[in-house]
């Protein structure tokens, strides 16, 4: 929205008010419409499990669930979140108890520095919501868009298999 105060001073007020569900709770947030969901989550809503890495869709550190599907939150404008269900790693914790995936990551020691971990967990969660018993290949595909600079891949894969692949 543009507000013209005087002919030569233009105040640009491009903030919009967006309502969406974050980890099961409705939130209303005011932010520039084109601001990324990643930045709004971190800077305006205090959700710090979503990490900025490349901010170009390539590293997966910012992955969230949008209506149950893994998406890179750096590529979503906050206006596009209107009316959607967003889940982050914080939202997987139920009544103080970690999600089985989070437990498995702990048990397997699937993180070193941990920067990539929430992104991997959310990507894996997206897969398991669609396919509770994924094949190894499906696991690899689901995390193909996530990068771990520490190279914890074998343990990450083991952790996901522990929750999803074990039944095979």
């Amino acid at each position: 929205m543009q507000k013209f105060l005087t002919p030569n001073i233009i105040v640009l007020d491009m903030d919009v008010s967006v309502t969406f569900t974050l980890n099961g709770k409705q939130v209303i947030v005011k932010a520039p419409a084109a601001k990324s969901l990643l930045r709004v989550l971190r800077e305006d809503l205090g959700i710090t499990s979503v990490k900025p890495g490349c901010e170009a869709g390539e590293c997966g550190a910012c992955t969230v669930l949008m209506d149950g599907e893994a998406v890179t939150s750096c590529l979503v404008m906050i206006v596009q979140a209107e009316g959607h269900q967003i889940v982050t790693a914080e939202g997987l914790v139920k009544d103080g108890k970690l999600d089985p995936l989070q437990e498995a990551f702990v048990e397997e020691g699937a993180s070193q520095c941990g920067y990539c971990t929430p992104g991997f967990i959310i990507s894996a969660k997206g897969l398991l919501l669609e396919k509770p018993n994924p094949s190894e290949n499906e696991i690899l595909e689901a995390i193909g868009g996530n990068i771990c600079r520490c190279g914890a891949y074998p343990r990450i894969i083991n952790a996901i298999k522990k929750v999803g692949g074990e039944q095979h």
């Binding site: 997966g60 590529l75 997206g126 689901a142």
Partner: peptide, 12 residues
């Protein structure tokens, strides 16, 4: 479609 980007990109 399955080769485009990765899962996150295919969802968007």
């Amino acid at each position: 479609s399955k080769t485009i980007g990765a899962a996150q990109i295919q969802n968007l």
